[in-house]
Write a protein that binds this DNA or RNA. Sequence first.
DNA 1: ATGATTTTGATCTATTCTGATCTAATCGCG
DNA 2: CGCGATTAGATCAGAATAGATCAAAATCAT
Lengths: 284, 284
Amino acid sequence: MIVLNGNLSEIEVIIGEEPSLSQAGGVKVDRLDAIRSHLYANGFSTIQALADAIGASLATVRRDLQVLESEGVIDRVHGGARIAEGSSVELAFQERAKRHLSAKRAIATAAYDLLAPRTAIFLDAGTTVLQLARLIRLNPMPLRIFTNGLTVAQEFLNIPNLEVVLLGGQLRSENASLVGPQAEAMLESIWFDQLFLGASAISPDGAIYSVDSAEASLNKCMLSRSAHRFVLADSSKFGTMATYKVAPLSASKVITDAGLSTHWRGELAGLGVDVTIADLGGRE
Amino acid sequence: MIVLNGNLSEIEVIIGEEPSLSQAGGVKVDRLDAIRSHLYANGFSTIQALADAIGASLATVRRDLQVLESEGVIDRVHGGARIAEGSSVELAFQERAKRHLSAKRAIATAAYDLLAPRTAIFLDAGTTVLQLARLIRLNPMPLRIFTNGLTVAQEFLNIPNLEVVLLGGQLRSENASLVGPQAEAMLESIWFDQLFLGASAISPDGAIYSVDSAEASLNKCMLSRSAHRFVLADSSKFGTMATYKVAPLSASKVITDAGLSTHWRGELAGLGVDVTIADLGGRE
DNA sequence: ATGATTTTGATCTATTCTGATCTAATCGCG
DNA sequence: CGCGATTAGATCAGAATAGATCAAAATCAT
């Protein structure tokens, strides 16, 4: 029986039955490991140095480096290669952050106008809320900020007059958020003036949904710990569904963009939900 | 004896005695790093001085400065260039991470060899421990990892078979760590097999010291929650002082590099501390 | 064993990088 | 304000590096 654990090269090794695999010279997997090892030990290396160290030609080393680069393990630069720095980690997340970017920025700007100095706010780990975080970094004001988002917290490094508290908990790679019972327990001892919550989806009957169970559970806790609740969701989210229900919109105010259909405007008015439509041109 | 007082740039200047850092191997990325370092150390430098220090022509230095200016890390003025105001603290961490890098990587490699699959470990927020984190990312094994370091957690995004738990608490910008009573409270409910702790300084009488009060307090909690304790400190840390005492070394094992003086080897042996000397060439 | 596929290494071409020289802009000083 | 001196920017040839192509070698499936 073969156990797959997500590592493709290991799978190949397990299935392959060559007894001569211990040979270090000619096998591609060994070469890739050797390159990674060499680059880690030296930080940076020219292609020539790698070729000498490994005993392969320049062309082969280049091809190997292409593979490693596509895996995100290394960074290739003119003149050689180096171990990838931590920054280029979340590809899917960054892609998601770019979708409907102008709408998200408009929404973030509208949300920023709601902030008051020296208050306590909570920022969710969503991509729309991240834009709000970016805006606060560029236009700082004294705030006490709570968040469960790694990227959100990162925005606030070295910004003066900000007290930033990150929730502890299990790291969820999909959106670099912290979730789980530890995060929820920590929330229980915190109270804040404003909550800015993103949403994976807003169901046709006007409820917030999330793609993740733990995230949804944590979102519920957030909602119960804030004096004012704002849901930041671009208009494309309305009328879509996700797996886990968080809460009805009725207890929150909504900030969205001008793309919201007249049907939904009426719907939200019928639910008694306060809606702010962010104007895309409304930048200061 | 060197007293560390929390001013990072002073630490760099005082301890910095390596001539090897300013040597660029003729490759662009090395030069950019060298310029960053030189400018960080001196605050301002003329183009001629940079060209002399790095060993490149004036034209090349100018072009490099253009790149760095577009990245926003420096400001160019007539006659030379200076570090951009905003990013000096951020650079301090990177500079610190690069100092004694080969020693730190050797230490990290020795620490990695101590890991066993499916155990629970805690990784401190120091720069040496960050190298261990990077090693785990490049060479993953199933682990339950706890940390209070934002950059450490970032390393583990999208790595399969890792359960990563980040301590909650107040964000400390200097080294992107989470500290404070909330972090300590969360530690109280966690127990792990191995702790890997960095150290700002190891005092002449063999005690761990830290530059930050909250960090020191948290470190004490960490030490009390682990079955095995490993202090990762390159040899330059021994015989230096910082402001806040964490704990004596006696209850921990030490991993350091071959630069440790014979005096200190004897000293540690006298204290009954188990010492591992990481060999810089000791790769698989 | 044999043919097909993949991998490797050498050669050639294209791109990028470097350093020198020349021209334009800026600074210091009377 | 103008002048000399210094510094910045532009251009270009030479060098180094990356990418593309192709034949030989190794590997794999039948």
